[in-house]
């Protein structure tokens, strides 16, 4: 589904990603783990066009997407959540999610301003679809709330709803369990497992229990290089990974 081949990223002389080659098989939940500063978020940023790779290829469904612009990703079928949640503060929960759903609509400014009948219908569809997604994630009570009024874990769920409502083929999740309690993490695991195989998931996460529970395949990044890959059991038994995580070894 997604493939990085020999990707280098240098930021002001510092090599953040160094020849990163990794695959995310279609229909899988693939984990990308590594110590802080290993380059996990940079890998995400390169995939979604926030940063450009110096060399190497990034391909999605066998098509290179190195030069694809961020706003085109949603249409291609890639959607992403951010570590910092990134909900629009002045929009309601429903509007936030609706924005995720509009990437596949065709209405433009002129037809919108004239409130053409089919635009009206499209609007209603988007609204209904967004409500449905919020309902699926148990957020039906907060539809009209503003993001700041919600507890952090709920905000994260809204961000997930916004990413899912565009019906992505590939979902990039940047630390969805960060700052979230045990119950919510269990719920998240259930949600993620239910998504596959229709949706392929690439998960950057520090919460090892979740990673080991849900992932089919794990890639380990350390100081910009891939140092290991394999099933959760293989990664647990890998000495190099344990060394990279020195001090955190017990969580593995």
């Amino acid at each position: 589904m997604l493939e990085l081949i020999g990707v280098d990223v240098t930021v002001s002389g510092l090599k953040i990603l160094d020849g990163v080659t990794m695959k995310v098989p279609a229909g899988s939940i693939t984990g990308l783990i590594g110590p802080n500063g290993a380059g996990k978020t940079t890998a995400f940023n390169v995939v979604c066009g926030f940063m450009r790779a110096d060399t190497g290829t990034i391909s999605f469904k066998d098509q290179p997407i190195n030069r694809v612009k961020t706003h085109q990703l949603a249409k291609l079928g890639i959607s992403r959540t951010l570590q910092a949640v990134g909900l629009f503060p002045a929009l309601t929960v429903l509007e936030n999610v609706m924005l995720g759903a509009t990437s596949r609509t065709k209405a433009g400014i002129l037809s919108d301003s004239l409130a053409l009948p089919w635009v009206d219908k499209e609007q209603r569809d988007i609204r209904e679809k967004s409500r449905e997604m919020l309902r699926r994630l148990g957020l039906v009570d907060v539809v009209d709330a503003m993001p700041v009024e919600l507890p952090y874990p709920t905000q994260k769920k809204v961000a997930l709803a916004r990413a899912l409502v565009s019906e992505p083929d590939l979902l990039l999740l940047d630390e969805p369990a960060g700052g979230v309690g045990a119950d919510d993490i269990r719920e998240l695991a259930t949600v993620l497992k239910a998504l596959t195989p229709k949706v392929t998931v690439l998960l950057v996460e520090h919460h090892m229990e979740l990673v080991m529970d849900v992932c089919d395949l794990i890639w380990v990044l350390d100081a910009g290089k891939i140092i290991a890959s394999g099933t959760p059991a293989q990664i647990r038994a890998n000495n190099e990974v344990l060394t990279a995580y020195l001090g955190e070894a017990e969580v593995l």
Partner: peptide
């Protein structure tokens, strides 16, 4: 409000 996130949502 947030150009970067808007882009992720498919907004030009």
């Amino acid at each position: 409000l947030n150009p970067e996130v808007a882009r992720l949502c498919g907004v030009r």
